[in-house]
Design a protein around this nucleic acid. Sequence first.
DNA 1: GAGTTCACG
DNA 2: GACGTACGTGAACTCA
Length: 930
Amino acid sequence: MSFGKGCHLHLIDGSAFIFRAYHALPPLTRKSDGLPIGAVSGFCNMLQRYVEGNTGGDVTHVAVIFDKGSHTFRNDLFPDYKANREAMPEDLRPQIPLTRRATEAFNIACKEVEGYEADDIIGTLAVKARDAGGRVTIISSDKDLMQLVGGGVEMLDAMKNRLIDVEGVEEKFGVGPERVVDVQALAGDSVDNVPGAPGIGIKTAALLINEYGDLDTLLARAEEIKQPKRRQTLIDHADQIRLSRQLVQLDCDTPLDFGLDDLEVRDPDPEILLGFLAEMEFRTLTKRIAEAMNAEPPEIDDTPAGAPEPEAPEMPEIAPEAYEHVRDMAALETWIERIRAKGHVAVDTETTSLNEMQAELVGISLAVEPGQACYIPLGHKGEGEGDLFGGAALAEGQLGLEEVLAALKPVLEDASVLKIGQNMKYDAKVLARYGIDIAPFDDTMLLSYALHAGLHGHGMDALSERYLNHSPIPIKSLLGTGKSAVTFDRVPVEAAVKYAAEDADITLRLWTLLKPQLHRAKVTRVYETLERPLVPVLAQMERHGIEVDRNVLSRMSGAFAQKMAQLEEEIHELAGRKFNVGSPKQLGEILFDEMGLDGGKRGKTGAYATGADVLEDLATEHALPARVLDWRQVSKLKSTYTDALQDHIDPETGRVHTSYMQAGASTGRLASSDPNLQNIPVRSEEGRRIREAFVAPKGRVLLSLDYSQIELRILAHVAGIDALKQAFREGQDIHAMTASEMFNVPMEEMTPEIRRQAKAINFGVIYGISGFGLARNLRIPRGEAQGFIDRYFERFPGIRAYMDDTVAFGKKHGYVETLFGRRIHTPEIGAKGPRAGFARRAAINAPIQGTAADVIRRAMIRMPAAIADLPAKMLLQVHDELLFEVEEGAAEKVIEAARDVMEGAAEPVVKLSVPLTVDAGQGANWAEAH
DNA sequence: GAGTTCACG
DNA sequence: GACGTACGTGAACTCA
């Protein structure tokens, strides 16, 4: 029957159904494999209720309409359109394709058009149906669709079961459907980030439109408005209002590759529908629908779930021989289809270098389910020695790099296909250099870190051994070690297939095991808000790098070399013979055996201790240890900084690119390596000069923003110490205030010495203070140190309570938590002996250090958006400091924006009872900026 | 490769 | 009563 008079079309807003279903239900997972299916379940229930409700009705045509693609013409008009939308929850994403399948299983037309919102398609279809003389019911509560109501089109809010007709629209907007866009254009929409006119809401907008007739007239005659403020707003924001109208106006000319006749109501095929429901393991729904259809409900097999903790879902053995070598485009296309059908894929890249800045892509491996993995070699060199110029020809059986990347790019960037990786930052950085922005993704390393920080490492080998009981093929077996090591492009393709595809397979298996545990462990939010979104931020910072002036370093190296030689000579003279000053063992023998100095204590290896503290004690009596201390300082600065940093300057960018380890430190801190830019000297005057080599390019400046006393502030908050909180609120000198409280010294009479002691105690508290430790730090007798601590606890009993509570919590649960829910495991807290002491102190420190780490992570994640419109780049993080490079004139603006983000970073999840404050500095180099 | 030392927060 | 102790990192060096 052709669509026309007497026909009734139902248009269901699929995305609205999905989100309703998702939020209405707890996070259900499929019993057999942990696949999240809560939204699918709710979606199917809603469809079923819909079908039941309309059986025997007058509906002749029906379709479920979905959004497709995240970029629409509205984004071209206004880049911030829907920009404040939160990212799709990660456990919803894999369910999207399943809702499409569900719709098809119900035998309901399921339609979407790339680059268009569902609303536009609904609008287009509604207009067509109306023009053909039929009736239309739009099943949605989206107010954007209300502009379509009238002339045989109405809306049904399925949740409230309320029909919205022209009167309903007037009630909501104060105008008829044909003027809804005008009102919306004025009022704006915070949900979709449509700007509208500031200060004007729906009420005022309706008033104005009703008075002037329509938006264009209103804007043309804006001068006539009586209220001065309103008048000015409309005049000032006329363009913005017109843009807003374009954004809310539905496009009722969406190009469609189907017609109304394709949407005719069809009965579902019981076998297909019940088959799908059984596959999803929806027992109740399967039974109910089977009854309704007079069909036999299929068996549902969800056996692997047996135990509530699915330890290891059934997986085939890991068999590297079975992996596929992809050698032609047809095979690649098949893999791409399988990926799309699955909705997720494990990806791993093989390259010529561990340094992502220089790594050339050699191959890509993919895995879609355990045991099913492939490797696509792209840049393997032939077996031979190569030509005279050292460049070997490409090996056989490889596809062209560009062709493969072009085929994979849509999948790797597709919002509905989840990419799974182990340490995805690496692959993302490599692929970024080939123009691929891999997203969305999961990272098994970060899953493990969110779940099990403090329990074990999170490298793939460790995870594979622990969870899969399988040792992956060692990379060394392919590349060799030491001088004879080769790069991955020299590995024969056949061996590379086994190794590389195995990595993807293992990654996929780890994901199937770890991902479902997030919810159970209640660390989903940690993973989603503190781990995953940080990856692209770090990748960007690493790619930026920081400019380092080689000449400054090299000059310093020369000066240090001279100084060292001079000191060495003096030291040998004082010792009476030559020896290796850099050898603690030889130094110990000289000091304590040959020179017979007191205080020689041997460590566990039998060697004398010659650490700085020991030498400092000796230095009061003798010249030699003092010289050695000087020598050590210079030697350290030269070898670790002025020499080594030069080797880290990237030849292509001329800058130094550190690498941040996100899952290294158990507390949630980052760690920087290759080179470590988190321990550039600052405490000594000579050392600080090294920071002069970290510079901004011409026309730019470096900008440093650091949290002031963030850990002490967090301590004041978590331990609930009113006196400390008060001091922070009033901006007092916290160490002086502590000293004043402890030693009953009025603030006016504070001496630097008393303040210094209080400062040491404040820090000691954060570290899990002990009398011995404080005594050593302050160089006072142990009894005196213990007296200080006792007095401190007496004055601030909340601190003692916090420490005791934290340790008790750690003992009970095996982990402690930050304010943001990050877990740090403390497996040794119940151990016997000194290990328990370590674990106790670590447990006391972890929530404080970890909360501070969480706060700056949150700031970093929000920073790119906050400075997007400013000529600024975030370059480095040093635990409580962020370093930026900005155009000279923009420094103040960037400071303002970045400070806002940093000071408000805890909110809205945590409302601290102390303010966070941020100090800022700027200059041509890091020494000046800090 | 373990142990020591020392740079940072 | 004796243990050995501040918390968290990474890099360079020596020495077995």
